[in-house]
């Protein structure tokens, strides 16, 4: 019985991954025939950027403050508080920035994306595009997928910048570290590979999570046994959970690839 359940879940997981991959391929395939794609992608960058920037900046700031406090106390035990800037910067750029920014964007924008597409599906807006001869994936999904490649790295950089400021606030203003020491330590810490890892991670997280959220919303009507608002609510919840888990799993893979 347990084996049967495990097998069923495994098949369901593989089927879900396959569905998502096919969805992604169909979105990519729709790009050449879609008109006004880049204008709509720019609009999506603007919308997601504006919507997420405040929360990303605030979370980045507090993350930096905590990093500064915890890092200072830990480093002080070793007499190495002068490298606090490096610690904060590398922690943010290599790991916390891409992951936490992605999680914030999922919460702020990914859930909205899944819900929006789910409602558009339920209210027949997606069907209406089909009857007009418009590829709904090209019109609704492709611009957002393209936007994700740019908007996640941009917001991750904003998160990192806020975090560095947060680290300076706690390290220098609260704990009394010399600002010049903090800045010098930070300036020398970052290699080109670190920034590349940060940008690659954030772009990959963007594509994966936006695809997951769109797929969940787009297929809201296919949920067995539920319909209407309930199907949208389930799709939104599932989109957020799957996207968050995917970010952490992808982070582990990309980090191991860069090390």
């Amino acid at each position: 019985m347990i084996l049967e359940d495990i097998g069923h879940e495994a098949l369901s997981f593989v089927g879900g991954v396959g569905d998502l991959a096919l969805f992604g391929i169909r979105v990519l395939g729709s790009i050449p025939a879609t008109r006004g794609l880049f204008r709509r992608a720019l609009r999506a960058v603007h919308e997601v950027g504006i919507r997420c920037l405040p929360v990303v900046a605030i979370v980045g700031l507090f993350t930096g403050i905590v990093l500064g406090l915890e890092g200072y106390h830990t480093l002080a035990r070793l007499g190495s508080e002068s490298v606090l800037g490096s610690l904060v910067l590398l922690s943010l750029v290599r790991e916390l920035g891409p992951v936490l920014a992605a999680l914030m964007i999922i919460g702020q924008s990914g859930s909205a994306l899944a819900a929006e597409l789910g409602i558009q599906r339920n209210s027949e807006q997606i069907d209406a595009l089909g009857t007009m001869g418009i590829n709904a994936l090209g019109f609704l999904a492709a611009p957002r997928l393209i936007a994700s490649i740019f908007v996640y790295p941009i917001l991750t950089l904003a998160f990192n910048a806020s975090g560095i400021i947060g680290g300076a606030i706690s390290g220098c203003l609260v704990m009394g570290l010399d600002p010049g020491v903090y800045r010098t330590s930070a300036e020398g810490a970052l290699g080109s590979g670190d920034l590349a890892e940060c940008l690659v991670k954030s772009a990959v997280f963007g594509v994966l999570t936006v695809a997951i959220c769109m797929h969940q919303g787009y297929t809201a009507h296919l949920r067995v046994g539920v319909s209407g608002a309930r199907s949208v609510s389930l799709s939104t919840t599932r989109a957020v959970v799957l996207a968050c888990v995917t970010v952490l799993a992808a982070d582990a893979l990309i980090t191991s690839a860069f090390l």
Partner: peptide, 18 residues
């Protein structure tokens, strides 16, 4: 069976893109 540009469909709920 896409109806194509020669046919249009008026949905019961209008299906306007909000």
């Amino acid at each position: 069976t896409p109806s194509g540009p020669r046919a249009s469909f008026l949905f019961q709920g209008n299906a306007l893109l909000d």
